[in-house]
Design a protein around this nucleic acid. Sequence first.
DNA 1: TAGCTACTTAGCCAAGATGCTAAATATGAC
DNA 2: GTCATATTTAGCATCTTGGCTAAGTAGCTA
Lengths: 101, 101
Amino acid sequence: MFRALADPTRRQILEDLRAGELAAGEIGARFSISAPSISRHLGVLKGAGLVTERRDGNRILYSLVEERLATSVGRFLSAVCPEQIVLRHTKWRPGAQQEGS
Amino acid sequence: MFRALADPTRRQILEDLRAGELAAGEIGARFSISAPSISRHLGVLKGAGLVTERRDGNRILYSLVEERLATSVGRFLSAVCPEQIVLRHTKWRPGAQQEGS
DNA sequence: TAGCTACTTAGCCAAGATGCTAAATATGAC
DNA sequence: GTCATATTTAGCATCTTGGCTAAGTAGCTA
């Protein structure tokens, strides 16, 4: 998870996906790196569960999994600086009994 | 910043420092890797501004910079999934006018 | 000064990350 | 089937990361 966030290109992709789903090509057009490199970044994000993909004819549309990000990162933040952060709209909350990932 | 969080040993160090400042040796004792490796991890965390060091006689005590973590990570989370997170007790808040890092 | 402890710096190596080009795959249109 | 478009996979080069050992630096005690 955090390794997926370590790369600035991948963080930018996540921010771009905030506006809604995008095709791989549309994402790639925003960067000056090759399509295969973008494809690999998307694969890393998908592997981390941060995005999902859906085929639409010729294209593959990617979209953000917001809760995955908020839950994982939020859990860590809550373990390190709980006074400074509050999560909303997630199943998991700091201090609550928990199960699952 | 995020690169510093990418390594699980460094994340654990941050969690350990949550309880209060610790000497480099005390931190190292909690892991099964060599002292030089721990020293480098601490250097990375210090470079990212996530910890500060202070000499105490023979030892060097490290402590967490909570706000640095909450602000940086929180800002990113707020850019990607603002509905799911709220920051407290930091100078910067999502949506507010901002200055500085 | 010497000697001890605590920690960092230097240098090496294996593994992983990230970029590229070329080739493969998948879909849609003809 | 063939062509064009969209995307991924394969293979390679290079840089970075994270571990180690050995050596250096800093402070304390005597």
